[in-house]
Design a protein around this nucleic acid. Structure first.
Lengths: 238, 238
DNA sequence: TTTTGCCTGTGACGTAAATCACACCAGTTG
DNA sequence: CAACTGGTGTGATTTACGTCACAGGCAAAA
């Protein structure tokens, strides 16, 4: 099945190749079959807003493909990006489980395929399938962990260079190694990077050019090259 | 049963008066009975360290009475307090569910009674009792929420006065209202308050005396008085 | 082509808060 | 009652970064 945004929708979860370790859809058959019945699969264009901070929880979204930006914004318009969620992750789990409003705003960064499950259906699923529930707990636990990491980054790192180095090194773990260094595809603007580490766009630009001058890393267009990983690591342990 | 630290241990969860809304022990009877069998109840003195950031997860602790400080520390010794957990909360849930090391360090602030449940026992409990599992998910979801709040505080608030005002107002929700203002019992040092909002001890002292001068709030000994709540609220919305 | 809009690069400047360095004051402890 | 120890109050100094301001680049629209 094809869609306006150029994504093929995978209708059948059983046949989906994404069903691997750590993905939310990695569940024993009975629970997955139940989920299959409840889900609404659909495709979204880039920039679609799935839910907004403060809204009452409608349900969860499972990312089948594409990436989604999760952010929070203050009264005066400053925004902070909590994380970029990837295929296999669930969105809106916290709000759906607790019944409290969504804490974050979710916006697609690319055309995405998402499976939506309504809150009441989802809760019933969790009550009847302990596997699914444990799975949900595990994903919430992941969310906690990434939140804790962010807290450490915001609260314990001293300089912006340190925070930025941390971020780039984190990205480096899923980049391809070439003989010049590690190549990573990043499609974020300096502004967005700034929002990921809680600083201003100008400072990101400055620190990035500092990294370039010191031959540590360079970001050109949407590809990031880590040129001197040990050098970067030295930055974060002072 | 009495203990060296002057706490009475409540042995029987069924009879415990803490079994109320939102407490981890608020569970349907079968799950609670199972839990009862698995738990090790014991009493700890003030300053006891339950687990340390980085340790392999041994299991969860349910707080029956007392308060526990959850913190994380950077390489160079700067520490950040994530939250002060109260009776009814579970500690170490994240690590126990995910199997990853404890993210935080837990230290009692007062003599406490805690029920410990070993990791494998706990996981088995979650697998067999969907209620318990949902309960765990709800608590994890709480943890996420409080982490998100902390992230907003660290990343989006501009001044320390704003962060401190936020913290004091949060505390004010469970204080008693007198005709002078709201009285809250706080048994934390300026240092600890600083660690809660990610700033330095000196700055906390300074901002607190600024609040006192402006007749907004005063902290004397271990009792905090909010004198002008609206005034405090005005501080956080600029 | 020009226009428009979004991104990036850099300079200048001000400032909040970290840091250092004391002095003071309980309590506790020998 | 010294002598400590752990918490608090405050001044002086320094600095990393936020903010403002503007210039150039590049891509899509017109």
């Amino acid at each position: 099945m094809s869609t306006p945004y150029g994504i093929e929708i995978t209708e059948n979860c059983m046949l989906c190749k994404l069903r691997q370790k750590g993905f939310f859809c990695e569940m024993p058959k009975p629970a997955l079959e139940e989920m299959e019945k409840l889900k609404y699969a659909s495709a979204y264009p880039q920039g679609a807003v799935l839910f907004v901070e403060g809204q009452a929880p409608r349900g969860v979204y499972v990312i089948c493909s594409g990436r989604v930006k999760l952010s929070t914004t203050s009264r005066d318009g400053k925004t902070l990006i909590l994380r970029i969620a990837q295929a296999g992750e669930v969105l809106g789990l916290h709000a759906t489980v607790s019944g409290k409003p969504y804490e974050l705003t979710a916006e697609t960064l690319q055309p995405c395929q998402l499976d939506f499950v309504r809150r009441d259906d989802f809760l019933r699923l969790l009550q009847h399938h302990a596997d699914a529930c444990l799975n949900a707990a595990q994903h919430l636990s992941q969310n906690c962990q990434s939140a804790y990491e962010m807290i450490r980054s915001l609260g314990l790192s001293h300089s912006v260079s340190e925070k930025l180095a941390r971020l780039l090194l984190e990205w480096a773990t899923d980049g391809e190694t070439t003989k010049e260094g590690i190549r990573i595809k990043v499609s974020l603007t300096h502004e967005e990077i700034a929002q990921l580490i809680g600083t201003s766009r100008e400072t990101v630009t400055r620190v990035l050019s500092e990294f370039r001058d010191k031959k540590l890393a360079q970001l050109r267009g949407s590809t990031l090259m880590i040129l001197d990983k040990p050098g970067m690591e030295r930055l974060i342990e002072t």
